[in-house]
Design a protein around this nucleic acid. Structure first.
Length: 394
DNA sequence: AGCCTTTGACCAGCG
DNA sequence: TCGCTGGTCAAAGGC
């Protein structure tokens, strides 16, 4: 077959941090708590977002559109915390700073921050998910950041299609009961021009971490509702862990993803490439496939999302080690218009801006995120996170 | 029986 | 132009 595709990434960063691919554009950095937070975010699935493969927008959307149940969280957070320290960051510096403080930091790319159609500044705040970052006080910071990121991503891609995804029901189940659960992934989404980096701070998630036991490192990538077949594995130089390559098993579906897993099986990074041209299979069938991590994802219709999400997504999850260590995991996501299909939707305008290299694959989005769980869990996590934040904040 | 994983080798892009 | 690295292929084996 055609052997194509090759990206030359040379992460020469010596830090434990993931091989961040340096993309041409400036990345937005978001620091997320290792697990709980991310889980919460992502897990909170919007009604439509369940069961899909991770898409940049999806993540955000899911996060924002979170369940009503948790709405209070934001309020809680807002009320509880009242120390806004948000700084418009520099990618790097901010990351470091925040990490040190062990708080969630999000660094949006200054340049493009505009609200996408779907996301209006107003609406964002409303959404429960958004609530995590409550507008007031500390939360606000996050909120803003997140909002910006989201917006940016959205904007950048207003076209970017949202991909259905990550939060799969399975995950939730997994999360609690299966070892594999620990594979929560943090998703960092970046969209075409906007690159979003999400970094996790180690402090956070301890509580969550415990839940995982890592043993299961199932090969399967995170469950996103789609079926994947592994077609290769390689140890990438920049990364500590081997990278696995998966293809969507659906006929004619060009989507591929690269997954890096830590020794314990945790997903450290997931990079989606391309967009699904089909809806996620109904889970029942193949628990196996998705199985490892998810087993079932729900694929509740998200055709919309799906269609929207076209370019690639990248999701990256940093394993706890990194998280612990620190800080800085920078991930970029660059969604680009690469895929043919995606191209259209993506819209031409934005894409061009940052295309890294025409040569390189254009559609990749990285997402780092812990996958997982359901609302209940989400709410719990949120609460936990809140507590953590409070604690940290002092 | 079918599908998936594993693994070594090959190919292609970039420095 | 060469070497390095990443990505993909394809055969073999396992579930």
């Amino acid at each position: 077959m055609t052997k194509n595709g090759k990206e030359h990434q040379q992460p020469k960063q010596q830090q434990p941090s993931p091989p961040s691919k340096s993309l041409s554009s400036r990345p937005t950095t978001i620091t997320l708590p290792p697990r709980s937070f991310t889980e919460t975010f992502f897990s909170s699935g919007a009604p439509g977002s369940l069961g899909f493969s991770p898409g940049p927008m999806t993540l955000l959307s899911s996060f924002f559109s979170d369940s009503d149940d948790c709405k209070s969280f934001s309020q809680l957070l807002a009320g509880a915390i009242a120390s806004p320290n948000f700084k418009p960051p520099d990618d790097k510096s901010s990351a470091g700073d925040f990490s040190s403080s062990s708080s969630l930091s999000i660094v949006p790319p200054p340049p493009m921050f505009s609200m996408p159609l779907g996301l209006s500044p107003v609406s964002l705040p409303d959404s429960p998910g958004f609530g995590l970052f409550s507008p007031q006080g500390f939360g606000m910071t996050h909120q803003q950041a997140l909002a910006q990121v989201t917006a940016q991503a959205a904007q950048a891609n207003s076209i970017m299609h949202v991909q259905p995804e990550y939060s799969t029901p399975a995950m939730s189940s997994t999360f609690t009961s299966t070892p594999g659960a620990h594979q929560q992934q943090q998703m960092v989404r970046s969209v075409a021009d906007s690159r979003v980096k999400i970094q996790e701070l180690s402090d956070f998630s301890r509580s969550d971490q415990r839940s995982e036991s890592s043993s299961l490192a199932v090969d399967k990538p995170a469950n996103d509702g789609y079926n994947w077949r592994k077609y290769g594995q390689k140890h990438v130089k920049g990364s500590e862990y081997p990278r696995s390559y998966y293809k969507c098993t659906h006929p004619n579906c060009p989507v591929k993803k690269k997954v890096e897993r830590s020794l314990d099986g945790q997903v450290t990074e997931i990079i989606y490439k391309g967009q699904h041209n089909h809806q996620p299979p109904q889970s029942n069938k193949r628990g196996k496939d998705t199985g490892g991590l998810d087993g079932n994802s729900n694929s509740h219709g998200n055709s919309e999302l799906d269609s929207r999400f076209q370019s690639g997504n990248v999701s990256k999850e940093r394993d706890r080690k990194n998280q612990e260590s620190s800080q800085a995991t920078t991930e970029h996501a660059s969604g680009m218009s690469d895929s043919e299909e995606a191209g259209d939707t993506e819209a031409g305008g934005e894409v061009d801006e940052d295309e890294p290299d025409p040569k390189r694959r254009s559609t990749e989005v990285r997402v780092t995120e812990p996958a997982s769980s359901h609302r209940t869990m989400q709410c719990r996590h949120k609460l936990m996170v809140l507590e953590e934040l409070l604690t940290v904040q002092g």
